[in-house]
Design a protein around this nucleic acid. Structure first.
Lengths: 323, 323
DNA sequence: CTGTTAGCGCCTTCAA
DNA sequence: TTGAAGGCGCTAACAG
């Protein structure tokens, strides 16, 4: 790889001049600029960002940690974040925590070594050592949490308005005439799950039937107490519930209404077509990256934390047909 | 961020000694090692990889360019590559070309500036300026193409055995008693599409009915010449074909058998359950990364190019039920 | 074993 | 408008 010095030699100028035409911060005469650009082209010169970063202590790189980017929600988030970052001249490094708190720590440590200027974090579901999050925030490296919002720690965050989203789904089922609506949740130590449960309860004025994913199958078998509709709070939970229904010979919407968070499948080509609460994944990513980049460019740290709650959309399909 | 010098000062040793305990390349006495590690912990020191890279001219970073990581195939590939890279101490930067040749060039240029040690590339479907690929190979930066293999350029590559995979799908339909099998392909300037067409033809000994995605709908309407089964060569094409079938009031497998490349939906919960030719996405990623890392560590460039063709798997479901 | 030191490639004053 | 030179943080000789 050629260096700036070789370009300078070929162009017959000093390295300073070459640097000036590359960064464009200092005016350079037209003739020299021409010569330099010619030299750059013939040598196929690419400025060494590593050296530049060392000098300027700016890497123009962001990191994003997601639990598992093979879950379709996250690539959309990453894509949104990457697009927003690119627009402002930044690159994005995306990695998976696989829901492991240890691995998440390692990754953050690695990113710090890599001198990323800020981190977008979807916290791993595995319980984190107490104080770990707050210590991370205290390091002063700009951090925005997305999708999953930590409980106690004050930190910038972007996520869907879980409560309103769950309420919207439940209201929809009620409007369609369902009266015995059960909610099937994932792990309730996750704040989002709690919020969704809360939205569900609001719609039902505090009443309701709460199942955890694992109990779904047995409960469905009991015809006497069976609900007439199910609200599932996430994709895996919904798949589990659907399998349970299949095993019990129940079909939606004929035997039971069904609404879930997260798209299970594409389009309306497949049956049952499931009414779905869809999160604005791309926008969550781009908004979070926007906030992070703002933080990075704020010279004195601005007080207070930014909290963005985006609305979900309801895609109404067959599984919530009127009773 | 503290520097190695601050650690050295706090521990009361030289920077050289600190460097030695960090890299572990030179033996250090137990007592000093203790002191250094203590200093590292109290300062929360993270070695600056940017400076390290500048010195060693090794970034331990790989790049991967995919067309669009919101297509579920690619996150799996990326995950495979990332895992293989991590195992050997490398990080991975993943970006999207959005099928644009220009953008792909920009990204490669950026990666070169970022000093990635090698690139994994799924070439953009947009036709690339002639000679661009070969120039890239000539730069000497290790490059492995995956999924899509360029036509003429000799380069390391990892992909599914498209021909065998298509033949397997077609053979399966024939065994199930289908006799008028049509193939619906995507853009035929992509080598993979050609190979899949070739495999289909092999199964039918050169005969067959070839449709391009766009012609699907009209052809289906014509009941007299309608085939009794469809083989689709990729996911979007299959969705388009399924929509065409729906519009014509045709159902699979009742009216027409159906086999496609790429999973359209999860599990067998949804109907129609589609028989699918599944590519080993994770393995494609990990094998490609393995080859790339081998290339990087080979001191003198080894002659010849490595070509890996992995077998696809056939997931048999309802849409290819025996006639 | 431990310390000293010369750069890695680049940007950025500063002087001319 | 151009050039010369210091130094970003670190590693890898090399000397002790």
């Amino acid at each position: 790889m050629p260096t700036i010095k070789e370009v300078a030699d070929l162009a017959g100028v000093s390295v300073g001049t070459v640097s000036h035409v590359i960064t464009g911060t200092v005016p350079v005469s037209h003739s020299l600029k021409e010569k330099v650009n010619a030299a750059i082209r013939t040598l196929d010169y690419h400025p060494n960002h590593v050296a530049r970063s060392l000098k300027t202590s700016r890497t123009r790189t962001l990191g994003i940690i997601v639990p598992d980017m093979t879950i379709s929600f996250y690539p959309q988030v990453i894509h949104g974040a990457e697009t927003a970052a690119r627009e402002r001249g930044y690159s994005l490094i995306a990695v998976n925590s696989l829901e492991s708190a240890d691995r998440q720590s390692e990754l953050i440590s690695l990113m710090r070594s890599q001198q990323v200027e800020g981190i977008l974090l979807v916290i791993a579901s595995a319980p984190m050592p107490v104080g770990h999050m707050s210590r991370l925030v205290e390091t002063g490296i700009p951090l925005v949490c997305l999708d999953r919002v930590p409980d106690d720690i004050p930190v910038d965050s972007v996520s869907v308005d879980d409560e309103a989203a769950a309420k919207m789904g439940t209201d929809h089922l009620r409007e369609r005439g369902y009266s015995k609506i059960a909610i099937v949740t994932g792990p309730l130590h996750l704040r989002n799950e709690q919020r969704r449960l809360e939205g569900y309860r609001q719609s039902l004025r505090g009443e309701g039937i709460v199942w955890e994913e694992s109990m779904c199958r047995e409960r469905l078998r009991d015809a006497s107490t069976r609900p007439d509709a199910l609200l599932c709070t996430n994709g895996p939970t919904a798949l589990s519930a659907l399998r349970g229904m299949r095993d019990c010979g129940l079909k939606t919407p004929d035997d039971i209404g069904f609404v879930t968070f997260d798209e299970l499948t594409v389009e309306d080509l497949f049956t049952p077509a499931i009414t779905t609460i869809v999160q604005p994944a791309y926008e969550i990513g781009s908004r979070a990256a926007g906030i992070l980049l703002d933080r990075i460019s704020e010279s004195p740290r601005v007080e207070g934390f930014r909290t963005v709650r985006l609305p979900a959309a309801l895609k109404i399909r067959e599984s919530s047909r009127s009773v």
